[in-house]
């Protein structure tokens, strides 16, 4: 089977790769590009661990074909910090211990980033519903919600 040549932008960098038609964007990121920050918790859109942003839309990369990324802009967890400077959400997740095992963390951070970009002052309920596509089995979500609230406050102050 011939591979499909894809030319796309990931975290601001032009990237080209070959992929099979049934390969997901998650497969491509992890297995072809070595970007293993996005995790596969289910492969069927249920857990959000594979969350990335494509052209400004939050999606599950396990439910996007690698071939579909042609000409798009993809943002992953690997592009969230700027050099030495962590994103406020990353910082607040650390301070609040919003992670235990951490497998869900990249997905939550990407989803929370998308949430705060669209709604800089979410209520607790908006945060909870906004992050309902991301499963965390360790924390009971309490500290995650608090970290997002705190990051929102910090980002507004900035």
């Amino acid at each position: 089977m011939a591979g499909i040549a894809v030319s796309t932008t990931i975290n601001g960098d032009g990237v080209e790769y070959l992929c099979q038609p049934d390969e997901t964007l998650l497969d491509v990121l992890r297995d072809r590009l070595g970007l293993t920050g996005a995790k596969e918790g289910c492969g069927t859109g249920d857990c959000g661990a594979c969350s990335v942003i494509v052209d400004g839309r939050l999606v599950c990369s396990c439910l996007v074909l690698g071939a579909e990324a042609e000409g798009r802009k993809v943002e992953t967890i690997e592009g969230m910090a700027h050099g030495e400077q962590l994103h406020p959400l990353q910082q607040k997740f650390l301070e609040h211990a919003a992670l235990q095992c951490g497998i869900c963390t990249p997905g939550f951070l990407i989803a929370a980033k998308d949430l705060l970009e669209k709604n800089p002052s979410p209520t607790e309920e908006e945060i909870r519903f906004g992050l309902a596509g991301n499963l965390c089995r360790c924390t009971g979500y309490d500290k995650i919600v608090r970290a997002v609230q705190d990051a929102a406050t910090m980002m507004k102050g900035a």
């Binding site: 293993t36 920050g37 995790k39 690997e78």
Partner: peptide, 20 residues
């Protein structure tokens, strides 16, 4: 309540899990 030693790796996607 300090920040955990493996924290930065986990918020930047660098931490390596079973499938990584």
């Amino acid at each position: 309540r300090p920040v955990r030693p493996d924290g930065v790796d986990k918020v930047t996607g660098r931490a390596r899990y079973g499938a990584d």
